[in-house]
Design a protein around this nucleic acid. Sequence first.
DNA 1: CTTGTGACTGACCATATGGTCATTGTAATA
DNA 2: TATTACAATGACCATATGGTCAGTCACAAG
Lengths: 203, 203
Amino acid sequence: MARGTMKTKQQIVSEFRRGEIIDAARSVFARRGFSGGIMEEIAQEAGVAKGTIYLYFRSKTEIYKAVLEHDMKTLKQDTLDRIDAARSLREKIEAFTLVRLENSEARKEFFRIMDSEQANLAMTRSQFRNWLREPVLRLAAAIEDASRRHEIRPVPAERVAWNIADMTRGTIQRRLLGFSEGSLREESEFLTEFVWAALAIRT
Amino acid sequence: MARGTMKTKQQIVSEFRRGEIIDAARSVFARRGFSGGIMEEIAQEAGVAKGTIYLYFRSKTEIYKAVLEHDMKTLKQDTLDRIDAARSLREKIEAFTLVRLENSEARKEFFRIMDSEQANLAMTRSQFRNWLREPVLRLAAAIEDASRRHEIRPVPAERVAWNIADMTRGTIQRRLLGFSEGSLREESEFLTEFVWAALAIRT
DNA sequence: CTTGTGACTGACCATATGGTCATTGTAATA
DNA sequence: TATTACAATGACCATATGGTCAGTCACAAG
């Protein structure tokens, strides 16, 4: 690490604590929801005293935002990367559904929060939509493109992209509720195949 | 009304009050969510004193359940009726999407609650799933049937039905958030057409 | 070892709010 | 009209919980 950017011990400890608190908060909020999540419980799970949390975050709302922001950014970037890495439209669609399914498995707690995003917090609400939006729009662009190339039949790209997102979300929710029907890959393939059939040029 | 089932004045007043309270509660819960919805506010909006509410409902949770139960039953029945009234599978799919879109328009408050159904209440959670489930299964049965008759290509009926429900829900949410793209009928037709394309027998 | 710094603690406070109940109002009945 | 029954009221209570802050303590510096 370059001179001058070396982290001091204080910074290291500080970042570590912050991370611990966010992890604990994610766990608690996933279990109890926002209003049900008690600061005392978060503190306990983070292994610090309640007062300590307020050295790192202004308020309960701030922590909630921090959790969402951290996880949503990761998911967003992850999704964008995987879409971009895929070549064909079909692969992009499969990539989109599969990343999100994989993420829902690997980070159940976060997805439970997403589910119950009652969007209490005004700011969170619009911000939240934007985080969802970007990957969907990226997918829409790919659809638009394929549509122009006549690889698929003409469709309103953005609508279709949102439909894909909707089905993926629904599938994830059903899995989280314990109706897991198959493997991630298999679920993803089913969705892709279904959409692909809808997009195919009719003969 | 048959003798013996004639409602007494007391019953009439009682049912009226109950209705008023449920209406007020729906409005408040839609605006503030469950934990944010304050009894005092519900009372005020219903035009009664807080104590009066407790003559009709055991607790805040009970009111919440009452609202959900009332509205979900209506929606469920409405959807089932419309599906059954339709003849062909395609019409049934369109019926499903359209009833729900229409309902979301006519009863925005209830749909806002459905959105934010963080399912705090354990009982509500499973009950809630069941209310959603029945119409979807009815649709699935129709798909299964059409599949057997070779009117559509072979598909896992229940999965497809859930996908339709997911897309419809997503569309409704986007409309409630103010991204209303078109008329109800037009939205419904788009969804139906999309699904139909996915189900068509490939030539 | 001594001392100074500031991270950390948790008892405490202020407030919000679900729920209660003694009191009051009102309408049916005699 | 007087009596009775019970619906309605809203001040009040109990509790939960977000947030504070005076005091403690671990650790680094000298």
